[in-house]
Design a binder for these strands. Structure first.
Lengths: 226, 226
DNA sequence: GAATACATAGGGGATTACCCTGAATCCAAA
DNA sequence: TTTGGATTCAGGGTAATCCCCTATGTATTC
């Protein structure tokens, strides 16, 4: 194989406040001939400064940076540098960290106990436009996902009394911001009837006003999202 | 190590309409001394029949069973057999399949191209009360999760102007069903000031009334769920 | 220093929502 | 058949909202 071919080097920027860790990653990556560590940063702001001058394909970003934390850095980086992809690195396999940084556009999340092979695999996979997550991390997320589904299901069945067909219609129109008079016109019933339904809804759903009706309706998905 | 110790055998029931596949799994598992295949089913109803008479710790369940599909079987099994745990097996790495069967209580989801080691690992992990998912499956789920977040995030950034810190506070209290006067008291500001904020919120969020504010706040998760 | 956004506050008025009581009709279940 | 729930409607009143306007002090940004 000709090694003189101009390989598409993957430019990597490392951001972690622990120098030893930065060095460790770098020494792992220098063994790879198509990976090039172009910068090292030890806090959030310097990442942004670096990327103003130079480009990078992959940002290996510690989630728990001092000062400006990883989530903010990730957001800021992706807003200005559309070609840079972020792989979050963290000591902690915490669901809140993972979801929040993914929510801010990170393409991957790996733990600090990740081995050499996995790190390189993650970088290459993300470079190709895929995403990558450590096995433990995915397990964490899946659990969180399962729990949230389960608990939302419980809510729905426990505290909500039955609301009638007509009440549901009125409720849906309230959620859609119609006034009582408008609801009456649409359902071809009297203003007073709508007020009755609204009043019954307030007591059934234990709400104080329309704002509460809307909140409860959305929390428990009592209305069809049209 | 004494092999004569009465090991806690893990009782396994296999359910798949492809006999060859059932045999394949069984031959893999018979090599393990603490795994015991106690039954084989080739459709959904026979799984339920089997579990009426005998017990199983793990049900390896094909998602795409003929007649009664895997999701229904999973649901029915878990309702009656609280000690049985379900690992879904499928040829397809489809997000909809995965989320639906997880939603119905499955503890794991693995693909049919899964190797011997991974299958055994999945079984043991699930037996211990954990969950297990093939790497490809988790990637699929994460992508779906990210896409859904991204699309909701797009909404958030496109049609929603920035709301100020104070406006957000007022909005949160509106969602919590407080009246304008009560909000004023809590924030130690005038009734009229709260009305100003509310009015600004109405125009910024393009809502007609408080119901709309609540709906938009919840759709775009502008408020912290306390 | 000027422009801009934000938080604050007010007047006055129109509209709407909310509360209470009461009551008629219809329909399905006991 | 009677009971009960759902739906319908009404009067009268209080409270809250929404809308239009203006206005000031204070940051922040340009």
């Amino acid at each position: 194989m000709p090694t003189t071919t101009a390989l598409q080097m993957i430019r990597i920027l490392i951001a972690d406040d622990h120098a030893m860790f930065v060095d460790g990653i770098e020494s792992i990556l220098t063994g790879e001939e198509d990976l090039d560590v172009v910068g090292r940063c030890y806090d959030g702001p310097s990442v942004l400064k670096f990327l103003e001058k130079e480009e990078a394909d992959i940002l290996l970003l510690d989630v728990n940076l001092p000062g400006m934390n990883g989530i903010e850095v990730c957001k800021a980086v992706l807003e200005k540098n559309k070609n840079t992809k972020v792989i979050a690195i963290s000591m902690f396999n915490e669901e809140s960290y993972v979801t929040e940084i993914l929510n801010n556009g990170a393409s991957g999340y790996i733990l600090k106990n990740t081995g050499r092979e996995e790190l390189i695999k993650a970088i290459k996979q993300v470079t190709e436009g895929h995403s990558y997550f450590s096995k433990d991390v995915t397990q964490t997320i899946m659990k969180g996902l399962m729990n949230s589904r389960r608990s939302s299901g419980i809510k729905k069945n426990l505290n909500i009394p039955k609301i009638s067909r007509r009440e549901k219609e009125v409720l849906e129109l309230i959620v859609k911001e119609f006034t009582t008079q408008e609801i009456a016109n649409q359902l071809f019933i009297s203003l007073k009837t709508v007020e009755s339904h609204r009043s019954n809804l307030l007591s059934k759903l234990n709400a104080r006003n329309s704002a509460g009706l809307v909140r409860i309706a959305m929390e428990h998905k009592l209305v069809d999202p049209n």
